[in-house]
Amino acid sequence: MVARIFRPARTAMQSGKAGTREWLLMYEPEEAKKVEPLMGYTSSGDMLAQIRLSFESREAAVEYAERNSIPYRVEEPKDPTRRKVSYTDNFRYDRRQPWTH
């Protein structure tokens, strides 16, 4: 039962960074989820999959895991790389792709 310590990425439906500042401690699943044949529900007997603890910093999450002797794995966040895009580049005369309108 290994715990993951990570900072969640923003969802595709989100333009802001709400909920991405905190660090989460979640357990890795011990058994695979199975589909119930009659209704098609997905279920699991793994009760630790329901635990989701949030912390203000990475150090606080690591300290909690060490204090409670929980084996853990830290996943460092990948910060997005942003390209500088200028609106005026759409109207340049030496564009790479010619204007199609």
Results as ranks from 00 to 15, higher is better:
Pro37Arg: 04
Trp23Gln: 03
Met26Ile: 06
Lys34Ile: 13
Arg10Glu: 05
Glu30Phe: 11
Asp79Cys: 11
Asp46Glu: 09
Tyr41Pro: 09
Gln14Asn: 02
Val62Pro: 00
Ala65Asp: 04
Glu36Val: 05
Leu53Ile: 14
Val62Ile: 13
Ser44Trp: 07
Pro80Met: 03
Gly19Ile: 00
Pro77Thr: 14
Leu24Phe: 02
Val62Tyr: 06
Gly19Arg: 07
Lys78Trp: 07
Ser15Arg: 08
Glu28Cys: 08
Leu38Trp: 12
Gly16Ile: 04
Ala18Val: 09
Leu24Pro: 00
Thr11Asp: 08
Met39Thr: 12
Glu56Ala: 13
Thr11Pro: 05
Leu38Thr: 15
Gly40Asp: 14
Leu25His: 02
Arg67Ile: 05
Asp46Ser: 11
Gly16Ser: 09
Ser15Asp: 15
Val74Trp: 02
Ala18Glu: 15
Ala65Ile: 04
Pro29Ile: 04
Ala18Phe: 04
Ser69Pro: 05
Pro77Arg: 09
Ile51Cys: 13
Ile70His: 05
Gly40Pro: 14
Tyr27Ile: 01
Lys34Asp: 13
Leu25Gly: 03
Ala9Lys: 14
Ala49Val: 05
Ala12Arg: 13
Ser54Glu: 08
Leu48His: 11
Asp79Ile: 09
Val74Ile: 01
Ala32His: 08
Ser69Glu: 06
Tyr72Ser: 03
Gly45Ser: 14
Ala9His: 08
Arg58Trp: 00
Gly45Pro: 09
Glu66Phe: 06
Met39Ile: 11
Ala12Ser: 15
Gly45Met: 14
Val62Gly: 09
Pro71Glu: 10
Pro80Cys: 06
Glu31Ile: 12
Phe55Thr: 05
Lys17Arg: 15
Tyr64His: 15
Ala9Leu: 11
Leu24Glu: 02
Pro80Asn: 04
Glu63Tyr: 09
Leu25Val: 01
Leu48Cys: 08
Val74Thr: 01
Arg73Met: 08
Met26Trp: 00
Ala49Ile: 01
Leu24Ala: 03
Leu24His: 05
Asp46Val: 10
Arg67Leu: 01
Lys34Trp: 14
Ala60Phe: 03
Ala61Met: 01
Thr81Met: 13
Met47Ser: 09
Gly40Gln: 14
Ser54Thr: 06
Arg21Glu: 02
Glu59Asp: 14
